[in-house]
């Protein structure tokens, strides 16, 4: 057995297919993207090595980059602020064996299975200034004066997109929290109830501490997915009006694939990668320290 498990041919046969496909599609391009960030190239002319020019332009002149950075952070913070408490609240309600629990859980989770494209196109229709559900509804309840071009107005567009994303993903985080709550031993809750603890007390002192790991996981998830967000923006606003909803990924896409500035696009994606990795590391470290404190 030992000998068989050390057989080099078998090992290579088992590991190589996955290793090769993975390496040529993920790590290798990720590294070479850093190299491409140092060139100026439109794929047609000859490639020019320009050193750090792309980065100096990015930091010194690229307003859109700063707008995208700001929007990405608004998107990130508001997504957490909207989705996390809502998901938490729903999970607590649904953690009890109430009637229709499965039905509600399944309905709220349903949009998670949809594609970003379908959800965005649907909300594009919902926000439509003439035939959209939102304006129709406002009109029907006598609030017609609030009618608005939600996605066309730079001051509301980003928030409109954030709400659409929350609509889709609250169910996801809710299920994570429900899984967390189900691990709480029933006798602890029972004991607390015997002691006369109210519902609020149980939530605050028993459920919440149990859910802390889940809350961390979902915060990290929301952070990385917000930093990478692209589909919703690309479809609903294409980063407009006038970059009011531009995020890092959409800016990178436009530069590289619409303007054919592959070098500059790589510089942007390198910045995005750095941001993603440092956010993950930072959050992990932050949460770990919390663990020690607790």
């Amino acid at each position: 057995m030992e000998r068989l498990l050390r057989n080099k041919t078998t090992i290579l046969m088992f590991i190589l297919p996955a290793l090769i496909i993975y390496s040529i599609v993920l790590p290798l391009p990720a590294v070479s993207s850093v190299y491409f960030s140092l060139v100026e190239w439109n794929l047609i002319d000859t490639m020019r090595f320009v050193g750090l020019d792309n980065f100096s332009f990015l930091f010194l002149y690229d307003d859109v980059f700063y707008a995208a950075l700001k929007n990405t952070f608004i998107y990130l913070l508001l997504s957490i602020a909207l989705q996390l408490p809502m998901a938490f609240f729903l999970a607590i309600i649904l953690s009890k064996a109430i009637k229709g629990r499965r039905f509600f859980r399944n309905v709220i989770f349903l949009p998670v299975t949809f594609s970003g494209v379908a959800v965005s196109l649907m909300w594009y229709f919902i926000y439509h200034s003439e035939v959209g559900l939102v304006n129709r509804f406002l009109e029907a309840v006598g609030l017609g004066f609030l009618k608005h071009s939600w996605l066309a107005d730079g001051s509301t567009a980003l928030y409109a997109v954030i709400i659409c994303v929350a609509w889709q993903f609250v169910g996801y985080h809710m299920v994570i929290y429900m899984a967390g709550i189900s691990t709480i031993p029933a006798d602890i809750v029972e004991a607390a109830k015997m002691d006369g603890a109210g519902e609020w007390h149980i939530i605050k002192h028993i459920m919440f501490p149990y859910l802390i790991p889940m809350l961390k996981v979902s915060t990290i998830l929301m952070t990385t997915s917000s930093l990478k967000s692209f589909d919703n923006i690309y479809i609903m606003t294409q980063g407009g009006p006038n970059h009011a909803t531009e995020v890092l990924a959409s800016h990178m896409y436009t530069k590289a694939f619409a303007q054919m500035e592959y070098g500059y696009g790589s510089a942007l994606s390198t910045a995005l990668m750095a941001l993603c990795i440092s956010a993950t590391v930072l959050l992990n470290r932050l949460f770990r320290r919390d663990d020690f404190d607790a």
Binding site: A18, S33, F230, F257, S266, S269, C276, I277
Partner: peptide, 22 residues
Amino acid sequence: TLGFFLLGLMVPVHSTLVPLYI
């Protein structure tokens, strides 16, 4: 090797696009 595979969880899709496209 396991660590190498798991590293892939950290890489955002976008940073592979340009080289893959090229």
